[in-house]
Write a protein that binds this DNA or RNA. Structure first.
Length: 824
RNA sequence: GCCGGGGUGGCGAAAUUGGUAUACGCGAUGGUCUCAAACACCAUUGGGCGCAAGCCCGUGCGGGUUCGAGUCCCGCCCCCGGCACCA
């Protein structure tokens, strides 16, 4: 009996069946040679599922189901990145606890993921706001602290005046808060940092271990870490006991240094003017600079401002006294916060020198046009030979850096050095909804770590969450803050800052391998059995946040003896962003397509297939303006077509060996060729072309039936193969039809179809004949044709003969069996 | 400025890595079915010339290598993205 494609009933039934039968449970220890650990970046539960989730889940889940059918032990887990600011802001707005908002959203997201047909291992779900999870954040913090990798320091830090919390450098995008887009300012605060800079070299060098990363992502991280090579040079200060070190990438221009610049906030600047007339001026200058947002401060449009300190540095290469200035273009936290200014060969120094009438001295002379500092209109940083450079006059600039650096080392004035743009990771947050930092401050003992046996330090409830300037809401929870010192028992106070949520996400994929462990964050043996992640999927927006922090964490875990692999996810797929009308989908913009509506109108299978068919997973996808109805135009009708094909042939009985005619043989060839190509497409995540190939097979099957074909054996082979190849992408329909064919067990546990190599080869192929590089005829020939035979057949063609113009080909290039190229 | 990725029909996109450019799909046009419409199915669909067989042009632009270039090389243009007063 034929039945309509009633996707709603089908999807609901199979969703429940799969979950109750725990079909996707992964073993504790996989077969080491046949394991696939597949992770998708866990979502932030800000509400119900949106199209971004649908896309990444569809990609990830199709991969997971494919490998499961390929016979791998697959671990495909999911969790929720449950701590974070939006929950807290929503809670303040509604006067509720962030827990309420967060766990309600998790419920929604959770059931939508199940509705979409995701084959996650539902017994391993992680929620980072559970004390059972964040206990281990605290545990890791303490281990980092013991290793000197966690430290508290007073420093000018990024401050978001809107969110009223500090931000890591990685969370400042073009001078603005990553979350709310507010211009960021600097604030002096004592903050906790993780010493990621200790690993800067490895974070660059070991990128090459990540063979499955895009060049783009590697480039993003490399740029972010910003390693540059050069030299450190010691400058003495006239009349001061202390010398100062500068970093330069151009030690060959040392002789061109005509002044010296300190960052306005530099401690040394203060010391150098103490008790002089300049003291007040510097204080005023500093205030001016502090008032600027980072956007203004680092804008190249704004004229540079500086202040001469009335003191002089001694250039060690020629003993010249050069004036010391503070200038707003010198940054405290890059290099040493001090620099030698070479206006002739650096544009910024040049602008500054012109503005304040400072000397400009050319020390690299281009061969063809003599330059001097007085007539220069812009800096000259390029090739030439060194001049005005004492012993190095005449040295080609190309050798300058190396030669001078060597000399600096020999003379004891400097040394080769490298410098990084990357700063230590600021992990303190002045907000409530995060992991409390497990430190206690005692007047007698100072910083005291919370003993392991007292973990977790749980978040107090009933706290006033309203943000305070530079103070965590936890500071108002007096009962919670005041504790006795674990060391001396005296009165002490808890650290009230919480951790950046990127701490949570730096190790969550280890926890999946052993999610219920209450003795340790995870068991090393279990983690080793699954790690490293075989395929990670997620957005590229985390390129210099999560994706760099977790790599740092991994390296520390290896040193702690908790992990083996230097890189946690050597293969990474960054899905493209989904937009509508070129803009990010958002409720306020009204350009949103709701997954729930797609479920109701067309079903999860049609939605998944639509996402996958839209293009390669990495490519951005602009959803068509008609919205959800696009699915009703593209993949939903096709699924109905597949359904119809199955229904029309469901009752075919396999009556044994029929004679296979040419039509049947051709169809079987198509089936086997499709298996071969589609398998390869899955392996390279080319879902869009895999679907195209399946469409061709379905078209062909309908065509075969229309001309009266109906061989039961071949149709059965076709339909069963088609369903299996489709199953990872459209799991519900495949399962339903599989059962309607009479099978008892799930199609998703069936072995992946194999193909007969012989059948993938065509017996005849189309030979293309070119004359002088142009296609002039196509001739059907046997696949095993010889070169001589090819030529004979070509010469037998009227079309070819007319193009040869009666002459003989002077050159023949044959690529049997498909191509013959003749030249006359 | 430095670095990365791109540019193929009206649209989303293919092209086994040097071998029939535009698979698959959307849209469009025509047709079958229908009282009619929707659905479904079939056909056509890069541009130009031609009654036709067929010919010419065509993968951002200009050169080059090759029997043959979307693919390789050289020089440009444009778009997207990252870093950037980073010494």
């Amino acid at each position: 009996m034929e039945r309509e494609y009633d996707f709603a009933a089908i999807e609901d039934r199979w969703m429940k069946t799969w979950i109750s039968k725990k079909l996707w449970s992964a073993p504790e220890f996989p077969d080491p040679d046949r394991k696939r650990y597949l992770v998708t970046m866990y979502p932030y539960p800000s509400g119900d599922m949106h199209m971004g989730h649908v896309e990444i889940f569809s990609i990830h889940d199709s991969i997971a189901r494919f490998y499961r059918m390929q016979g791998f032990d697959v671990l495909s887990p999911i969790g929720y990145d449950a701590f974070g600011l939006p929950a807290e802001n929503a809670a303040i707005k509604r006067g509720i606890d962030p827990r309420e908002w967060t766990y309600a959203n998790i419920e929604k997201l959770h059931s939508s993921a199940q509705r979409l047909g995701c084959s996650f291992d539902w017994d391993r779900v992680i929620r980072t706001s559970d004390p059972e999870y964040y206990k281990w954040n605290q545990w890791f913090f303490l281990r980092f602290y013991e290793r000197g990798l966690a430290y508290k320091k007073e420093a000018p830090v990024n401050w978001c005046p809107n969110d009223k919390t500090v931000l890591a450098n990685e969370q400042v995008i073009a001078g603005r808060c990553e979350r709310c887009d507010t211009p960021v300012t600097k604030k002096y605060l004592a903050q906790w940092f993780f010493k990621i800079t200790d690993y800067a070299d490895r974070l660059v060098d070991e990128l090459e271990l990540n063979v499955g990363w895009s060049d783009r992502l590697k480039m993003l991280q490399t740029n972010w870490i910003g390693r540059s090579y050069g030299a450190e040079v010691e400058f003495k200060i006239d009349g001061h006991h202390e010398s100062v070190t500068v970093f330069t990438t151009r030690p060959d221009t040392l002789w061109g240094a005509t002044f010296f610049v300190l960052a306005p906030e530099h401690r040394l600047a203060e010391e150098l003017v103490r008790g002089t007339a300049k003291e007040q001026e510097l204080a005023a200058f500093r205030e001016d600079v502090a008032r600027l947002t980072e956007i203004d401060r680092t804008s190249t449009e704004r004229p540079k401002k500086g202040l001469f300190l009335g003191r002089y540095a001694i250039n060690p290469v020629n003993d010249e006294r050069i004036p010391i200035w503070v200038a707003d273009y010198a940054l405290l936290d890059y290099g040493t916060g001090a620099l030698m200014a070479v206006p002739a060969h650096d544009q910024r120094d040049f602008d500054f020198a012109r503005q304040y009438g400072l000397d400009v001295r050319v020390v690299i002379q281009p061969p063809d046009r003599p330059l001097d500092g007085a007539t220069l209109t812009e800096s000259w940083p390029h090739e030439g030979v060194m001049v005005n450079s004492g012993p190095f006059d005449g040295t080609p600039a190309s050798d300058g850096v190396e030669t001078v650096t060597k000399w600096l080392e020999e003379s004891g004035i400097g040394r080769s050095a490298k410098n990084f743009r990357l700063r230590d990771w600021l992990i303190s947050r002045q907000r409530y909804w995060g992991t409390p930092i497990p430190i206690i401050f005692c007047d007698r003992c100072g910083e005291v770590p919370v003993p392991d046996e007292n973990l977790p330090v749980e978040l107090p409830t009933g706290v006033d969450f309203t943000p305070k300037e530079g103070l965590s809401p936890l500071a108002t929870a007096e009962d919670w803050v005041n504790v006795s010192c674990p060391n001396c028992g005296g009165a002490a106070r808890r650290e009230t800052d919480t951790m950046d949520t990127f701490v949570d996400s730096s190790w969550y994929f280890h926890r999946y391998t052993d999610p219920h462990n209450d003795e340790a964050p995870f068991d090393r043996a279990k983690a080793d059995a699954w790690m490293p992640i075989d395929q990670y999927t997620g957005g590229i927006e985390h390129a210099v946040m999560h994706l760099i922090y977790a790599r740092f964490f991994q390296k520390v875990l290896v040193e702690m003896g908790l992990a083996r692999d230097p890189e946690p996810y050597p293969r990474l797929l960054n899905q493209g962003v989904i937009t509508m009308g070129g803009k990010r989908m958002s409720k306020s913009r009204g350009n949103i397509v709701e997954p729930q509506e797609a479920f109701t109108r067309y079903g999860a299978d049609a939605l998944r297939l639509y996402m996958l068919f839209s293009g390669p997973p990495e490519a951005p996808f602009d959803w068509p303006p008609e919205g959800v109805e696009a699915i009703g135009r593209v993949t939903y009708p096709w699924l109905q077509r597949v359904w119809r094909l199955c229904e029309q042939n469901r009752d075919v009985v396999n009556v044994g060996e029929f004679h296979l005619g040419p039509a049947e043989l051709a169809l079987r060839r198509h089936i086997h060729r499709t298996v071969k190509i589609v398998t390869r497409d899955y392996e390279s995540f080319s879902f869009n072309t895999a679907i195209a190939r399946l469409m061709e097979l379905v078209n062909n099957a309908h065509r075969y039936r229309e001309v009266g074909g109906g061989h039961p054996g071949v149709m059965k082979e076709l339909i069963e193969t088609l369903l299996k190849l489709l199953a990872p992408m459209a799991p519900y329909l495949a399962e339903e039809q599989w059962h309607r064919l009479g099978h008892e067990s799930s199609i998703h546990l069936e072995p992946w179809p194999t193909f007969d190599e012989e059948l993938t080869k065509e017996s005849t192929v189309t030979m293309v004949v070119q004359v002088n590089g142009k296609v002039r005829d196509t001739i059907d020939v046997p696949a095993d044709i010889s070169e001589e035979e090819m030529l004979q057949r070509a010469l037998a063609s009227d079309k070819i003969r007319s193009h040869l113009d009666g002459g003989e080909p002077s050159k023949v290039v044959a690529k049997p069996p498909k191509l013959l190229s003749l030249v006359v």
